[in-house]
């Protein structure tokens, strides 16, 4: 068998896998920093919009109690962002944070494709599908 049709050369494959590892590391770090920045921005915005929050108010019950009217679908968040509502920015930051490990799984699929590792492409795709399913299940259940 000649080297050209012997499949991916181990050394090159390893370098590509290493690159994917570094991308995973960067995605995780960037995702956390970016989402926390959006969350802090949204929190500050809430207090700027509601000067009353600086004093004791019954609003605290509404904000932290059961049935808090918080945005929890992408549509509601998008609507709130257009109106520059602070809590909508916080919610968007939270969604970004939850999406960070999900992006990591999606990128891992690439690493296993490079290695021509069918079993692990399947394993990783299943995990990704489960993660996406959780949002759908939560919304209906």
């Amino acid at each position: 068998m000649t080297p050209t049709n012997a499949g991916p050369q181990p050394e090159r494959t390893d370098a590509r896998v290493r690159r994917v590892e570094l991308v995973i590391s960067a995605v995780l770090r960037t995702g956390v920093v970016a989402s926390l920045a959006v969350i802090v921005f949204g929190t500050v915005l809430s207090f700027v919009h509601h000067p009353g929050y600086l004093h004791p108010t019954s609003d605290l019950q509404r904000l932290t109690g059961p049935r808090a009217a918080c945005p929890h679908s992408l549509g509601e968040i998008g609507e709130g962002l257009r109106q520059w509502r602070g809590q909508a920015f916080v919610a968007a930051g939270l969604v970004l944070l939850i999406a960070t490990p999900i992006m990591r799984v999606a990128i891992s699929i690439l690493a296993f494709l490079y290695q021509r590792d069918r079993i692990f492409v399947l394993v990783t795709t299943t995990v990704l599908a489960l993660l996406l399913l959780s949002f759908v299940l939560g919304a209906t259940g």
Partner: peptide, 14 residues
């Protein structure tokens, strides 16, 4: 994902 879609993650607390 489940908690968020169910509305159990309050942005003000989180």
């Amino acid at each position: 994902g489940v908690y968020f879609a169910r509305g159990d993650i309050s942005p003000f607390i989180a």
